[in-house]
Structure formats: C-alpha cells, structure tokens
Write a protein that binds this DNA or RNA. Structure first.
Lengths: 214, 214
DNA sequence: AAAATAATGTCAATTCATTGACATTCCCTT
DNA sequence: AAGGGAATGTCAATGAATTGACATTATTTT
C-alpha cells in the first residue's frame, strides 16, 4: 500500500536507468553499486539510491544491486511486464514511420491497427496491417480493448479525435500533434512536441555562441 | 551584457509560450495580460512574469504584453530569427518521415541534405533532395556550413557518426538514436528518446489504474 | 491634469529536488 | 563463527524552482 506520489522528475529518469541496466545485463554484468552506476551514467550516486528507494529497497547493503533483478523491477514499475494494446491515428509520414520504426512488441506494446481519413490510403499495408478508415476507429477501440492511441494527426483535428478515443475507453494518448490536448485528468497524455525540442536546441546553440567563448 | 545563466526549466517553457502567442497573434489579439495568458495556458501568472523577466521586461505595467512584440522577442531568444543549415543522417523510416513531415523552413531551418549508408537508397529523392552516401557527409558538413545534424541512425553507430560531425564543425545534434552521445560540452545535444517517452506513458497509465480510483 | 485603475517587475516565502553525510546492515574473509 | 569492510537506506542540509505578495509604474478615465 505504498501511496505517496512519486514525482515526475523521478519517473523521467527511470527509462534511462532501465536502458543502462539492460546494457549491463547484456554484457553479463551481475552486480553493480550505486557508485559504479553513477560513474557510467554521470549522475550522483546519492540520486540513484534516492530514486530507487522511492519504490522500496532493491539493493543489499554491503553488496550493491543485482543487475538483472533491478532491471526487472524497474521494468515492472514502468509497466513493461504487462501488454498494452496500441493503435496509431494518422497514417502520414510520421504515423507510418513510427509503425515501422518502433519495435513496439519488444516492450509489450501490441500494435493493433492504424487509421487515417484519406481514402487513398485505405487498405495499404503497414507492417502487415491494413490502414483503416477513421470511421472505424471508435468501435475498434471499444471492441479491441485499446489502451494507448498514438496521435500523429494535424493539430486542427487532434482534440476532436482525442475525445472520441476517450469516450471509447482509451487510457493513454501518446500525442505528437502540436497542441495541448484538453482531456480528462484520468486520461494520461504524454506529449512529444518535436518542434519544441528543436527550438530548445537552437536556443542552446545560440546561447553558446553568444556566451563568453566565441 | 546579461550574463546570468538561464535554467533549462525556463527554456523548456519558451516554445510553448511561443506557440500560444503565435495562435493569439493569428486570432488578431493585440494585447494580453499574464493573468489572461495564465488562464489559457494553465500555468501561474507569477511564473509567466518570472519567466519573461529572465530576459528583461517585455511588458508595460498597467497594460500587459503586446502579443506580436512578445512573440517576436521570444522567437529571437529561441534563435528563430536566424537560419540554420540542417542535415539528416539516416534515411530510414524516421529520417524520411522527419524530412517530409517537419516544416523545417517555416522556422528558419534550411534542409540541406540527407545521408545514409545503404546503397540502395542513394539517389532516391526526399523532398527534392537526393539521398547521399554517408562517405560524403564529412566534406558536405564542412563545405556547406551545416549547423545542425538530425541523427536517425541505430545506436550502434551513433557515437562514431557524432564525432565525425563534431570534427567537421557541427554545432548541435538533434539525437533520435537511443544512446547518450559522448561529445564535447561545446556541442549542443537535444535528445528525443521516443521509447523513454512511451515508458513514461505506461507508468502513468498503470499508476492511475492502481491508484485510489479504480 | 490629476486621480484611479490595472498589471508589471521584483522580492520574499514556500515548496520541491538534489546532494551530502552517516549509521545500519549485510556480505565476505579469516 | 566472528569481525572487518563495503555499500545501502535514510535523514538532514543545501540548492533550485515555483508561488505569492506588493510596491511601482504606466495607462486610462474623469
């Protein structure tokens, strides 16, 4: 019954831990101390221990952490021990690329369908999956217990589509549309605002150039 | 000679301000108060004023902010008043999608080339741009004053490619490869780790389900 | 032209996140 | 089996970010 809220700052770091631990595991390394992990990942050992302790003790004093065990536990925290049914809304460049590029199944994401409202795309196959017309989306979500929708549609229609998804039982939205979706707080939204990210990059480039270095 | 370092927390919020101000501008709205913006964007008015004041006062007391002026100024801060030469490394699903999908030119990013090491792609046209062999990358970066490289290649080769870019004068890397690049601090790196983002989403979905609500 | 109003700029207070320090616990060796 | 060493778990201290409060200054109205 752990019920204290864990900050998103901590959560944001978990996937990175997970990635490094996965690599260590693949290298056959069995144990690691916060000190060693600290050196590899370039964060403080204190933060590592603090982060893990949010979820209870995963280590053994005097020994360190068992890599495989820790890897599994963090995976569980992130929900990667379960499967999630996923669909992609919008079969444009980005939607198709994500369908092909992300190795969804590897982490328990079952790619169940891809939708678009452009009739010339209907039936085209992406990863052995026919592109379906948008009209079928709502019933499909309901009948196939879809958990996650990936939104790769223009921002103008994003909110309307999001609400249709919500009304049919979606749990989370991975939002690539360039708007902030206005959905109930019970629906989890993870935004990937690519242009925002690129702007941060240019800020930092310019800052560095204008900084004391030149 | 403002020289105090501005926190990345503030920078991360600037693109979002920029987006909302752009929309307000398009709607023909000329002035706005931090109070009103606060209501629209769902952040505190205090934070808005604090954020803007990092860069000097953009508003007028008793009046508010001039939308267009503020929009322009934030654009300048983000470096969007200049042009940046950009190339894409890796013409796989994601690289091609970004080339087609991102409206780079709109914000001053000049799409100058796309590279891959798969000979069967050489010469294929993406946005009127032939895919070039990887071997030409280094000289191309040098000779065309490329500022930004978009890395959409497998993680195994990411570090090696990054260093070639660095050696030929790149200023920033927009990194979609699933590794933390080990480049000099003078090179700006903006990571887009898509699977990390998706894991955060599943964490939050599961957290909500297991929370007190069910 | 002067007073009233409105909203910024800024300082202080609070909250949140990170780091440092150390006692505790467990492993490993003798 | 017992003691030494090593690294966790945790608490306290520091530092950073956010919020709240208000004096200041510009605008607008009378």
């Amino acid at each position: 019954m752990e019920n204290k809220e864990i900050s998103q700052a901590v959560i944001s770091r978990l996937p990175r831990y997970f990635r490094y631990l996965g690599e260590l595991k693949d290298e056959g390394i069995e144990r690691i101390s916060s000190q060693e992990l600290s050196a590899i990942m370039d964060v403080t050992a204190s933060q590592i221990r603090q982060d893990f302790n949010n979820f209870g003790g995963f280590g053994q004093q005097g020994y360190g952490y068992k890599v495989e065990y820790l890897y599994e536990e963090i995976g569980k925290i992130l929900g990667l021990d379960r499967t999630h049914n996923l669909i992609i809304i919008g079969a444009g460049n980005l939607g198709q690329a994500l369908a092909n590029y992300m190795n969804f199944e590897r982490r328990g994401f079952l790619f169940k369908g891809i939708f678009d409202n452009n009739p010339s795309l209907y039936g085209k196959k992406i990863r052995d999956m026919e592109i379906r017309p948008m009209e079928e989306m709502e019933s499909f979500v309901r009948e196939n217990n879809i958990d996650i929708a990936v939104l790769t549609i223009p921002k103008t229609s994003a909110d309307a589509v999001a609400w249709k998804l919500v009304d049919n039982g979606i749990k989370g939205i991975w939002n690539f549309a360039h708007v902030d979706l206005d959905v109930p707080k019970s629906i989890q939204v993870e935004n990937v605002h690519l242009s925002d990210s690129l702007m941060k990059l240019t800020y930092n480039i310019n800052r560095f150039e204008q900084g004391c270095y030149s």
